[in-house]
Structures are given as C-alpha cells and as structure tokens.
Design a protein around this nucleic acid. Sequence first.
DNA 1: TTTAGAATTGGAACTATTCTAATTGCAAAT
DNA 2: ATTTGCAATTAGAATAGTTCCAATTCTAAA
Lengths: 141, 141
Amino acid sequence: MNEIESLGLTKQRQAVLQVIREADEHLTANEVFEYARRIRPGISFATVYNSLRYLKNEGLIGDVSFGNDATRYDRNLTRHDHAICNNCGKLVDLDLTIPNALIKQAAERSRFEPESIELTLRGLCPECSRSGDLKNKLKGK
Amino acid sequence: MNEIESLGLTKQRQAVLQVIREADEHLTANEVFEYARRIRPGISFATVYNSLRYLKNEGLIGDVSFGNDATRYDRNLTRHDHAICNNCGKLVDLDLTIPNALIKQAAERSRFEPESIELTLRGLCPECSRSGDLKNKLKGK
DNA sequence: TTTAGAATTGGAACTATTCTAATTGCAAAT
DNA sequence: ATTTGCAATTAGAATAGTTCCAATTCTAAA
C-alpha cells in the first residue's frame, strides 16, 4: 500500500492525485483528464473536476490561475511565487523570501486581514528571451 | 474638446474609456457595457470587447484578473499591487514599494527577463473580517 | 462624390467550468 | 449473504466569459 492508497481516497481521486504528483509542470484540468484516463480508463471529465475540487479542499493539491487561461493544478503546497512568460505563457514556481516589512505594509495599506501573499513576475522565459534575440539578429538589428 | 475627445478615438471607444475613467471600482466587461450603453445607446457588446482590447494595446487602460472571475479593467496605469478578498472577491489597488533586492532575487531564480512584478495579498476585506466576528459572536464562540 | 479601409454590429462559436439528475459503488447494519 | 442508504461517479446539459465572423456602416482622403 503506497502513500496515495493509504489516504482512503476513491480510485478516481487517487488517479487524479497521482497525475498531479507525477507531473513536472502545472497541468490544466483538461491535461489531468488526459493522463488520468490512462491510469483509470472510463473516468469522466466531471469526476476530474469533482476530484480536483475535493483534493484542493482537503489541502492535498494547490491551484494557480492567471489571466483567462485555464486553472492549473499544483502539487507544491508550500507558499511560493510564480513567474509567467508574457510570450508563451510558461509558468514556473519560484521560492522567494517576502520581507515581513512588505507583508506588514500590504496589510496596513489594504486594511485586509491577510491570509496569504504572493508575488508574480511577468517577463520572458529563457527560451522566448533567446528567440527574441535571434529574431532581432535576422532582422539585422 | 475635452481630454478624451482629443485622443482621436471613435465615439464608442471614447464612451468605453470614459466609463473606466469615471468608475471608482474595477469594472468587468459586462459592467462596462452596462454603463457605456447609457452614454452611447446602441453600442454592442462586441464593440465593448474590441474597444477594451484596443485601449489596452494603446496603453490607455490596464486590466487585472484573478481566478476564473471575469477580467476587470483599470484606469490606473502606474505599477501597483492588489488585495483580493477570499470571501466576497472585493479587489482593491495597493501601492507598495517592492524592494529591488526582491526583484533581483525573482529574476535570478526564475532566469526570466523581468518586465513587471506584482504582489497580491489574499485575505479578508474589512467588511468580511467584521462580519466574520459577528457570526462567531452569534454562535457563541 | 467615390472609394477603400477601419470600425461596428449581431449572432454564432468556443473554452473552461459548474450543475443536474440518474446511476453505481461500497461500507455498515441486519 | 442481503439490504440499505449515502456518497461518488457519470453523461450531458447549462452557464459564463470571451472571441470570432461575415455583413453593414462610418469616415476620411482622393
């Protein structure tokens, strides 16, 4: 009995959790469905969504979403930040230390009771940054 | 000829821009449409979307979006951060000073070429925070 | 005026997600 | 073993936000 099985989840929820834990990138619900059906053929799309909601409420997975793109699911449950590519949309995790003074400043100025705080860097990922150079070279810039 | 008229925009785009500039909150496309049709009856939904995209590309408005909620449009073009309520979804602007060291750390660790950086505080807005207290009192906690 | 390109329009199409109602699976009680 | 009841699953419909498309209208320059 492995770790996932020991959680007392249904077979479908186990499959969804396994997919997210084994993925190297952040998957969309659609992608989770594609992979999950390989482990458990016959699983329905609705069950994937139900499972994702359930697993998130249980604190077994996290999620991220930017812009109008599909929500992506995250095996990393610790507090972390993100970088997102303005050109290709690539999303990567980032571990930053947010200074307490900054958190305090944010809480004071917003008058919100803070529960979490996250930083997002938008820019060009290494690949897009490099191909941008290339394009400029071809144009003779 | 006021400032908006002097930009050489079409009547429809002027109306959309005016709505966003006069709004005290961040409006969704739907809300922009509701207000814009009062200024310019007959404006279509498609034109509102077209105008929002156009104005954004021209750098006359900004936008923000969180989770799977509708994109909201922003008259504030200067760099700023946001606080968003985990209970009611209220979104407020926040002016924070992000330390250069933090920006540098983010760029180095992600290996992205940074274009912008933003911080998001999630928590309870003053209203929700207060009504939470109230609920607890009624429950006798 | 004429005309060409841009903007606008209404509606269809699309994507991501949620809802609904019927069915199935499974664990506890008999 | 069998029954029972609730939770989970399922397929498909429904919804929300947004984009696309083809036809029409506007506008500014020739």
